[in-house]
Design a protein around this nucleic acid. Structure first.
Length: 503
RNA sequence: GGGUCGUUAACUCAGCCGGUAGAGUAUCUGCCUUUUAAGCAGAGAGUCGUUGGUUCGAAUCCAACACGACCCA
């Protein structure tokens, strides 16, 4: 008895995938088209819902006929009849009632269908005993056969690894995931709308660059075969966007991918989406004012409110936000002794005491910002501008006329993390050359993230760049805020995953 | 790079003082024309992440590795 069973198991390969493949083969052999494309849809399921809402009294056997198509998400079979639930691209579901006596042969076909198959149903509407609007199917068609089964309907797909690797299954099974990406799309649209309305030109600049500049980060290297040269994937579009300002486009912006060769975490993905804009005849102060408007606009467009709940914090994007000089923030929020601010040795000792890793060779400005990252940044929950960054850490920013050690630069912090960085642009080519040289020195001293010399960019500045202010905003981090996502992977459709070897 | 936790059926999870694997859903067979995680009866399904070690015997103990989650740098 038991031996027989084992033999059967071997032959049958009793797993669902094998069963389905066998069944598909049999249906094809019987002349059934598993992938027809001639079904005509009359209404999206959301449109059916609207029709019902608009005139529920008109619905019934003599009422309008609907042809809907979508994925079968559930089947309740009763022998000679069945209820099915169909979901389409609108994300909405509708129930249909299939009866053997009504459908004849089509009902026999239906008996072979599985949850996950795409189907088309035509019929009028009725309500069930429990009052649910249901299509009374006069025709039933298979539109596309699913060979693999969907995850279980109640618990769905939970395993984060599987959710990211098989995002399409995640999107089928988890409506809240779908909602995140709808919001992200609305967010990008709102940002684009905001800048285009204000006369900014949307542009695309190179992602493959000979010199990767515009940020302090390690680039990815790629190779061009025909040209026989290595190229860098861009770490920022900044230097190209400013070349466009030189070229006469006074207001430009770009929303696109940057690539940084660093670790992955809940806040870092090797490729991420950045928005940068440049605005001639404006200053850092103008940028801050525009940011306040922008964030309120986008928050409203995406969530319907200027107050956004993020990980238990009610974050207010309306109104005017605090602007705190970096040094004041270090003293008032970070608890750094005011007397230490220009005492590099004292700060190094203080950092050591606080267990903050700083290398001995780092310049005062860098030590200050490292202390800031640990002591102040996590405490900035409500939108806050930190202003007055030291020249050493701001190689592309215009010097402050009042204090040449500082720049007209700010960073924007929300929910304890950096979300934007903006400044009046350095347009003095001589000063820019000196700044690059300083960076090159640091690079030679072992800082792999320091800037490389970009002669072509300096040449562009030598043609004259109008006084300009520019800003970058991390779109993924903004999406996290607007979708209450704790990890950046939740707002990136296909976050980077290492390949699995045994599978 | 370091730490903690995880990886068992298609999915969600039990099993982990070592004795050769289990539930629910899904699947298959039979019954069922108003279900809402439908119901009833029966059945099949697993390289227990990978490799090695300890042992008479490993999903279980140990080690290394892979992948992932979270925290730290």
């Amino acid at each position: 008895m038991q031996e027989n069973k084992n033999e059967n198991t071997q032959e049958d390969a009793g797993d669902i995938l094998s069963q389905r493949r066998r069944k598909n083969k049999e249906m094809k052999a019987a002349g059934i088209n598993l992938y027809p494309n001639d079904f005509k849809v009359s209404h999206g399921i959301n449109a059916v819902r609207q029709e019902i809402e608009g005139a529920p009294d008109r619905m019934g056997p003599d009422g309008p006929v609907f042809s809907v198509a979508g994925r079968m998400m559930a089947i309740n079979r009763f022998g000679k009849s069945a209820f099915i639930r169909i979901k389409d691209g609108s994300g909405e579901l509708i129930q249909a009632y299939l009866q053997s006596k009504m459908l004849g042969e089509a009902f026999d076909l239906f008996k072979q269908m599985d949850v996950g198959d795409f189907v088309g149903v035509t019929g009028t509407l009725f309500t069930t005993r429990t009052g649910e609007w249901t299509l009374d199917a006069s025709t039933f068609r298979l539109l596309s056969k699913a060979t693999r089964p969907l995850p279980e309907k109640y618990h769905g797909l939970k395993d984060p690894e599987k959710r990211y690797r098989k995002r399409y299954v995640d999107l089928i099974m988890n409506p809240e995931v779908r909602e995140i990406f709808l919001r992200r799309s609305r967010m990008i649209q709102a940002v684009r709308e905001f800048f285009i309305t204000r006369g900014f030109l949307e542009v695309e600049t190179p992602m493959m660059q000979v010199v990767a500049g515009g940020a302090e980060a390690t680039p990815f290297v790629t190779h061009h075969n025909a040209l026989g040269m290595d190229l860098f994937l861009r770490i920022a579009p900044e230097l190209y966007l400013k070349r466009l300002v030189v070229g006469g486009f006074d207001k430009v912006f770009e929303i696109n991918r940057n690539f940084r060769n660093e670790g992955v975490s809940t806040r870092h993905n090797p490729e991420f989406t950045m928005m940068e804009f440049y605005w001639a005849y404006a200053t850092d102060a103008d940028l801050m004012a525009l940011s306040e408007e922008l964030f309120a606009h986008v928050a409203k467009a995406v969530t319907g409110d200027v107050v956004v709940n993020y990980q238990g914090h009610a974050i207010r994007f309306d109104g005017i936000w605090p602007k705190i000089p970096l040094l004041d923030a270090l003293v008032e929020i970070g608890g750094v002794d005011k007397k230490l601010l220009d005492d590099r040795e004292g700060l190094l000792a203080f950092a050591k005491e606080k267990n903050i890793s700083v290398t001995k060779t780092e310049k005062l400005g860098k030590v200050l910002t490292k202390l800031f990252d640990v002591l102040v940044e996590p405490k900035l929950i409500q939108p806050t501008f930190i202003t007055g960054y030291p020249v050493e850490v701001s190689p592309l920013s215009r010097r402050s006329d009042k204090n040449p050690m500082l720049t007209e630069r700010f960073e924007l912090f929300v929910a304890g993390r950096e979300i934007g960085n903006g400044f009046s642009e350095l347009n003095d080519p001589e000063d820019q050359r000196q700044r690059f040289l300083m960076q090159v020195q640091e690079r030679e001293a072992g800082d792999a993230e320091a800037h490389m010399m970009d002669e072509d960019y300096i040449e562009a500045l030598e043609y004259g760049m109008p006084p300009t202010a520019g800003q970058g905003i991390g779109m993924d981090r903004l999406a996290m805020l607007l979708t209450d996502a704790a990890s950046i992977r939740e707002v990136i459709l296909f976050p980077h995953m290492k390949p699995v070897s045994h599978q």
